[in-house]
Write a protein that binds this DNA or RNA. Structure first.
Lengths: 147, 147
DNA sequence: CTCAATCCGAGACTCAGTATCGTTCCGGAC
DNA sequence: GTCCGGAACGATACTGAGTCTCGGATTGAG
């Protein structure tokens, strides 16, 4: 089953039009393993011979994010990227600092921690951002790289 | 004891010149409670009658960050800001989504969590970004605000 | 005081992301 | 199958944070 079908189905189900550019976007992100930026998609679409306007890429990503199909992650140096992810489950990501591959880590049991923070600081914690950075299994094995 | 003294001392100790603009910056950040952006400092300096160039503000913040005097945090919507913080202690921040005040929460005991992630995913986790967002004690009490 | 190294500010530049707007496309109704 | 209004499109201008550059000013060691 083509992964892009799921994306299109989600779009349709939420009442969005199934337009050409969106189909293209769906295919592009369905095949991705690691992180990607909006710019990456613009170029990828161009390379595939069905260019999509920059504005449209951002708009689509916004929708995909709202539907929980992709998630925005904030990289180490502050720039950001997207990763495809399993909708509807609370989870976080580990992002490989070398190759960019990312993996869900499921719920890491943050609740007791937020509760202890609330008790200590008096804040009411409403959300959090948690991202882990490191080397994925493949990159661990390789010699210190250039690239 | 003026908090800016500590900043100046750290600068001096690290071999940086103690210039006028840096003194101004030191004073400006020493008094801050919550988060602030580079832009905030530019305006604040201007208001105090000793304007500092934008480039200089960024350069100084970079140095301060390297010295562990301030820390860059990434806000909920992706933009970022700085908070003053206690150098040399592993800790995280809770940032108030209403007023911007921020507080250290010390070490929250993330080690066992990173270890469990390594075991589950095969990644070697080298760093993480953890930020909590919510309402500080003052803002919790107030009626749903404007501004 | 002198002098080289450091640092400064002004402003041009970059780059991601947003806003605008006239045109095009989608898809439900008929 | 055709019509039509709303949704979506692309091109492009704009914005705002952050970086780079460079000639001139400051710092502080000697």
């Amino acid at each position: 089953m083509n992964g892009s079908d799921a994306v299109l189905q989600a779009l349709d189900h939420a009442g969005y039009h199934l337009t050409g550019p969106r189909r293209a976007m769906a295919q592009l992100i369905a095949g991705r393993q690691g992180r990607f930026s909006a710019e990456d998609l613009v170029h990828a679409a161009q390379r595939e011979g069905r260019p999509v306007g920059r504005a449209t890429v951002f708009r689509s990503l916004e929708i995909f994010e709202a539907l929980g199909l992709v998630e925005r992650v904030h990289l180490a140096r502050g720039e950001h990227a997207y990763v495809v992810c399993d909708p509807a489950r609370h989870h976080h990501h580990v992002v490989c600092t070398r190759c960019g591959r990312s993996t869900d880590v499921g719920d890491i049991g943050i609740d007791p921690i937020t509760r202890s923070i609330e008790a200590r600081t008096g804040f009411r914690v409403e959300s959090h951002r948690i991202e882990f950075f490191g080397l994925c299994p493949e990159c661990r094995g390789e010699p210190a790289a250039r690239a």
